Computed example of a mutant assay.
Amino acid sequence: MKTDWSRATPIASSALPAQLTTYLDAHRARDVSAAIVCYTQDAVVADDGHTYRGLEEIRTWLGRSASEYTFTAELTGAGRIDEMHYDVVQHLEGDFPGGVVDLHYRFTMRGPLIAALHIAP
């Protein structure tokens, strides 16, 4: 069943699950070790036209994204569909192509861990 992200109700960033806040902080700090423990063993990440399955592929993606470009990320919005689906909007500025972008980080949780993350404008 496909998630209808347009149904997300705005929430304060403080209402995000603790594991999402931990992940976002670790990702922003480029701390791959702290970020990877936020995922389930069989997690899936879709970013920039690529899909990464399982912890090893996600760890490689995290390491590459942490070193490929220099950027800042500011959380500018958050929404919740239900206890499993959260949409976090981040404003990124850096030395990547285009230099500025607002990205949706669409999380699917399984228990306290991230089972899926889809990143898109």
Results as ranks from 00 to 15, higher is better:
5 W>A: 06
27 H>D: 08
25 D>Q: 13
72 T>V: 12
78 A>Q: 05
10 P>C: 10
49 G>Q: 09
109 M>R: 07
93 E>M: 07
30 R>Q: 09
88 V>Q: 03
9 T>L: 15
5 W>N: 02
90 Q>Y: 11
37 V>S: 11
37 V>I: 15
119 I>Y: 00
66 A>W: 09
102 D>Q: 08
44 V>H: 04
23 Y>H: 13
6 S>D: 11
119 I>P: 02
53 R>I: 06
26 A>H: 09
42 D>V: 08
11 I>V: 14
83 E>T: 09
74 E>K: 12
10 P>T: 05
100 V>H: 03
23 Y>Q: 11
107 F>G: 03
27 H>P: 00
52 Y>P: 03
107 F>C: 02
17 P>K: 12
21 T>L: 13
9 T>H: 14
109 M>C: 05
118 H>R: 02
85 H>L: 13
67 S>Y: 06
107 F>L: 04
109 M>K: 07
10 P>R: 12
27 H>R: 14
26 A>Y: 11
2 K>W: 12
32 V>Y: 05
79 G>P: 03
55 L>S: 03
80 R>S: 10
62 L>G: 02
106 R>K: 13
44 V>I: 14
82 D>A: 06
98 G>E: 00
12 A>W: 15
29 A>W: 07
73 A>R: 14
50 H>P: 01
19 Q>S: 12
27 H>W: 15
5 W>F: 14
100 V>D: 00
63 G>W: 09
63 G>D: 06
72 T>L: 08
114 I>A: 04
63 G>I: 11
93 E>T: 06
1 M>D: 08
80 R>T: 04
120 A>H: 11
15 A>F: 14
27 H>Y: 14
21 T>R: 13
104 H>I: 08
11 I>S: 07
22 T>L: 12
42 D>M: 10
87 D>S: 14
13 S>G: 15
72 T>D: 02
114 I>V: 08
87 D>T: 10
11 I>K: 09
68 E>D: 13
14 S>A: 15
92 L>E: 04
109 M>Q: 05
51 T>D: 00
85 H>Q: 10
114 I>S: 01
69 Y>F: 15
8 A>R: 06
79 G>C: 06
51 T>E: 05
44 V>W: 09
55 L>W: 04
89 V>G: 01
118 H>T: 07
115 A>W: 13
71 F>G: 00
117 L>D: 01
32 V>L: 08
17 P>H: 11
121 P>G: 04
69 Y>C: 03
6 S>V: 15
52 Y>L: 06
60 T>S: 10
58 I>C: 01
69 Y>S: 02
4 D>H: 11
1 M>P: 06
14 S>F: 12
103 L>G: 01
29 A>C: 03
60 T>E: 10
118 H>I: 07
36 I>H: 07
95 D>I: 07
30 R>E: 03
12 A>S: 15
103 L>R: 09
115 A>L: 08
118 H>G: 00
115 A>Y: 09
57 E>L: 08
119 I>H: 02
34 A>H: 05
49 G>M: 12
58 I>H: 02
4 D>Q: 09
98 G>T: 01
60 T>A: 13
120 A>R: 11
103 L>N: 03
95 D>C: 04
104 H>S: 12
18 A>T: 14
94 G>S: 05
